[in-house]
Design a protein around this nucleic acid. Structure first.
Lengths: 159, 159
DNA sequence: TATTGTTATACTCTATAACTATA
DNA sequence: TATAGTTATAGAGTATAACAATA
């Protein structure tokens, strides 16, 4: 190993950690997206924890609310959740008394999903918590950056 | 269930799936970030697969290259990887002959990480593949959106 | 006492395949 | 034959705790 390389394993003179550079990663949107996503994920989950929800359960509740009577596979497909995994997530929401699964009259293979009164009440509280989280994201990112990022990313459509 | 709710479990007249709305999710940066991150993750991993790498192994290689001689914990900390998980990832890179772990002369607990000649060669090819991926992201997002998103997100600093 | 690398464990997430009841 | 929901399983990712060597 070169002398300069060896030097980087040491602490600096002032006792600080040596600064780690990112190389090409600094030019890749994917790195920044992953870093932001990680922070957002933890912050929003902390915000939802008092309601016994996480961001996935919340997203399912909100999507059911916006599409009363939709089938499991439709909600799962829109949110990018495997239908096999959806089963356990809906079991959880149902056991918590937040949703109902009724057999669809049009297609008796399908379950028509809906919120219970309690589900609507919890969702309302969740939306308050998530709005507060969203403000933290905006403050953290800076108001202008937040607006620009949201505008830019909102136009991305998955296959 | 109401008649309108019941209607949404059906296909439309033209046989198309009924459109699923996102409700409040449409106002949350986190939803867009997650969606983009998912697409990027799959695309970059497909780009790196021919080199027997994924985006995590690539990120480690690139960061080692930019910080020759750094310790495992320093690289792991910068990339947000648990040091326990780092062990298996470095095992993989070492078995593939891409990196070396030398005992640090300054701190004999630590491993000084470095790339082998083969590691440098593979990393060079990986950076070509990732640059092509980055162009796909930019095209998919639109050149302006891509620039705005990168500029906005680059300023986000994790704790 | 604290830290680096390591091992082990448990939990979650993802991806598949197969089964049932319906279409 | 194909689809919606379900069950089961294997692999990957994440989070912890504990240990040996070293600081």
């Amino acid at each position: 190993m070169s002398k300069s390389a060896r030097a980087r394993t040491q602490r600096n003179r002032d006792g600080q950690e040596p600064k780690i550079h990112l190389g090409e990663l600094d030019n890749h949107l994917g790195y920044f997206v992953r870093r932001l996503q990680h922070w957002i994920f933890r912050d929003v989950n902390a915000a939802l924890a008092p309601l016994a929800l996480d961001v996935i359960l919340y997203s399912i509740l909100e999507t059911i609310a916006a599409n009363q009577g939709a089938a499991q596979i439709a909600i799962a497909g829109r949110l990018g959740i495997e239908r096999a995994r959806m089963v356990a997530l809906l079991d959880e929401l149902q056991q918590a008394g937040l949703i109902v699964r009724e057999r669809s009259e049009q297609d008796r293979r399908a379950h028509a999903l809906g919120l219970t009164p309690r589900g609507r009440m919890i969702l309302k509280k969740a939306n308050v918590a998530v709005a507060a989280h969203e403000k933290r994201v905006a403050r953290r990112l800076g108001a202008d950056n937040y607006r620009r990022a949201r505008a830019a990313l909102a136009q991305f459509e998955t296959d």
